[in-house]
């Protein structure tokens, strides 16, 4: 058996075992880790199939972004408080596994009895090396024959981003924060109430400019800048 086949079998074996573990695990976080192992092995298989670029993209997008997001959501949803999800209803389970086995048998028969016939294309190992490698080859093909699909994909991604923003927006029925922040002030040094424009005139001798566009008001006397409640009432009566 060639070393290539051996390596392939090893990689795909691990991928299949961990994929099976993914659906068997009780804890969803464990499932996610099993899926990471599967994806990394699949990426290695991609490299064997002369798709280095896709292998790296697979890792960046699937394991680096999508699964991290899934883990993020899993952690936000505290697993302890949730009911036991693993056990589906027995009927469901029997039906699911049964269907899987039937489908696997069907595909196995198809793979073993039929042969795919097609014209070999120009992108052999040497063909790719001629243009500089897998990335360059994909670039050439992608940007010559698939311009429209790229644009469409970009649109889909944009729409998805907007959709996610829409879904993730805060609840509308959020209670307004209590209005304690808008109280009248009794200090002359402070702007009064919510009317932010009305700043009492202060002589420049009292103001000390500070970094960050702030001023400090320098009081020389205990009576400065302070009005007693009686003063306030008088002011309101006038």
């Amino acid at each position: 058996m060639a070393a290539e086949v051996l390596v392939f079998n090893l990689l795909s074996g691990i991928a299949i075992v961990s994929a099976a573990a993914m659906i068997m695990m009780r804890n969803p976080v464990h499932s996610a880790i099993a899926l990471v192992i599967t994806f990394v092995n699949v990426a290695a298989v991609f490299i064997m199939l002369r798709a280095e670029f896709l292998a790296v993209v697979q890792i960046i997008v699937y394991t680096g972004a999508i699964l991290v997001l899934i883990l993020f959501v899993l952690m936000l949803v505290n697993p302890d408080e949730l009911p036991d999800f693993h056990g589906a209803r027995p009927m469901q389970q029997i039906f699911g596994f049964g269907l899987g086995i039937i489908l696997l048998a069907e595909i196995a028969v198809a793979i073993l009895t039929r042969t795919v016939v097609a014209e070999p294309g120009p992108w052999t190992e040497d063909g790719m090396a001629a243009v500089g490698g897998n990335v360059q080859a994909i670039g050439q093909v992608l940007y010559s024959g698939y311009v429209l699909p790229i644009q469409a994909t970009a649109l889909v991604l944009l729409a998805a981003t907007i959709g996610a923003l829409f879904l993730g927006r805060p609840d509308e029925d959020e209670e307004p924060t209590p209005s304690r922040r808008t109280v009248a002030t009794i200090s002359l040094a402070h702007t009064r109430g919510s009317d932010q424009d009305e700043i009492p005139a202060l002589s420049s001798a009292n103001i000390k400019h500070e970094a960050g566009d702030r001023d400090l008001i320098m009081a020389r006397d205990a009576d400065e800048f302070t009005s007693t409640p009686e003063d306030d009432q008088k002011g309101q009566q006038e």
């Binding site: 086949v5 392939f8 079998n9 795909s12 991928a15 299949i16 994929a19 099976a20 993914m22 659906i23 969803p28 499932s31 599967t38 699949v42 298989v45 199939l49 899934i70 959501v73 899993l74 949803v77 949730l82 999800f85 693993h86 056990g87 589906a88 469901q92 389970q93 039906f95 699911g96 596994f97 269907l99 899987g100 489908l103 696997l104 595909i107 196995a108 793979i111 073993l112």
Partner: peptide, 26 residues
């Protein structure tokens, strides 16, 4: 056949998972 079996196996495992699991994240 090698990669076709791998592909089929992973696809069917995924399908069985969809059919039998109840956690929407899984």
């Amino acid at each position: 056949e090698h990669f076709m079996f791998l592909s089929a196996a992973l696809f069917i495992i995924g399908m069985v998972g969809v059919l039998t699991r109840r956690n929407v994240l899984v």
